[in-house]
Design a protein around this nucleic acid. Structure first.
Lengths: 249, 249
DNA sequence: ACAAAAGTGTTCTTCTTACACCCATGC
DNA sequence: GCATGGGTGTAAGAAGAACACTTTTGT
């Protein structure tokens, strides 16, 4: 709905800051778009948010949620704005993935896209579908539908990248609720990496890093012994990484 | 010389595929440029290639070598073309770094740049200066001059990224000659990481990875015992990484 | 009592670190 | 023979892997 006007309604002489009257928002760099890879965790399964696209040429294919970069907005701000427009949620974890610009990636027109990836916490996971304007779907990364343009390539790159990042940067926490148990964290890694981990060893490894602060609270309403809740401490991580510590799973 | 026409000679209505008669090459996406971070190793010091820019506003500042992306060329092809234009050398190691697009990074006009980083082997290191058209300079990354626009920010990000990459991907070899000694490799890591490493331990760590094939040759003309020469084997690395191996220094 | 998950302990192996040492070669 | 770098050995300690075990709590 947001990204697909150019090739049909516009002849091939759009200007960089020229204001288009009809279908395009004002002040966009028309050759440049954002595509967001929005990841979430659902029952220990890694999901990505896809949107349905109704285009004449491509019948109802799925796509990454994206849109145009405005002429007067920073790249990251554009990605954050579009992220909020599509999910209804603010302030998610968001980082640039890569620019994709194959000549023929977009029909009729040269369009370069800058892909960002975002992580949705468990608290917001359900809201994302509820708040967004229909035709939006959490797809399992292990069972993806056919995607439009080069979005399969972008997503595949992004999943590989996420698998790498999650092992080398403490970003996985962004997929969990603010307060989480060690087993939830372990399940997260097992889900993203498609593997199984040894519980005692995983606990020790994480705890030795001193990145988690205990909430002095326990799980509520579980049908078994309640686990301690922890919270990730970005301040401690910042200090540690300045003194040479590097996160590794 | 290549990147600095837009703000002065062009009024603010360039078209995406419109052919400009005078100063711009044809068929460029005018809002999009490439900037290359070209690294080389000189006497165990990490250097980066900078070019002098003669612009009215900024008196003789240094810049990253870059240029326009043509309308009909892939991003990576554009980076490779510009890399060859500036260095005279083909087929260097080249990967995308990141897109930079702060609103005010470029004067008068919104220009997004996609930064790539390249590694120049020891064989080509001297040629780069010799072949390129003047006003080009290998600067030590530890002693950088003032740079134009946001190039200092881009370079600082790139150096940090290179330091990380070199520890997690076997890319350092691209800075050495094709055949190199283990001590050359160690000196490379010491130069890039600004640290010292234990010789016996470094050797064992590298050799255990099985990524180096001995050339069955020794150094020539050194005033001490000649070291064995090795060569990096990308095929072996490919196989290993497919079976789960991950490179770590 | 039992199921289900929380959490601890122990052993064996491997890797890391630090440092001592011998080897080959040109001058 | 001595300086210079090439190359190997080794022992102590840290970290990782595998798995047995005890604890807590809701039903």
């Amino acid at each position: 709905m947001r990204i697909d006007h150019l090739s049909k309604q516009q002849p091939a002489h759009p200007g960089i800051i020229h204001v288009e009257p009809l279908f395009l928002p004002e002040n966009v760099i028309k050759a440049l778009t954002i595509d967001n890879l929005i990841f979430g965790l659902d029952n220990d399964e890694l999901k990505v948010l896809l949107v349905k696209r109704h285009e004449p040429g491509h019948d109802n294919l799925w796509a990454l949620p994206g849109g145009w970069i405005r002429y007067d907005e920073n790249l990251r701000d554009a990605a954050a704005r579009l992220l909020e427009e599509w999910t209804g949620v603010k302030n998610l974890y968001l980082e640039q993935l890569k620019a994709f610009g194959r000549i023929d990636r977009f029909p009729n027109e040269r369009v370069v896209t800058i892909a960002y990836y975002a992580l949705v916490s468990a608290e917001n996971y359900q809201d994302v579908i509820a708040l967004s304007a229909g035709d939006v779907h959490w797809a399992s990364v292990n069972n993806l539908p056919e995607l439009i343009y080069d979005h399969a390539e972008i997503l595949s790159y992004g999943i590989k990248f996420l698998r790498h990042q999650v092992c080398h940067q403490p970003i996985g926490f962004n997929l969990l609720p603010e307060k989480f148990t060690l087993l939830q964290l372990q399940a997260l890694y097992e889900a993203i990496l498609n593997t199984t981990l040894d519980k005692p060893n995983f606990r020790r490894k994480i705890m030795k890093m001193d990145l988690l602060t205990p909430c002095n609270e326990k799980q509520q309403g579980v049908p078994h012994r309640a686990a301690n809740l922890y919270r990730f401490d970005p301040e401690v991580y910042k200090q540690l990484s300045e003194s040479g510590f590097s996160f590794e799973i």
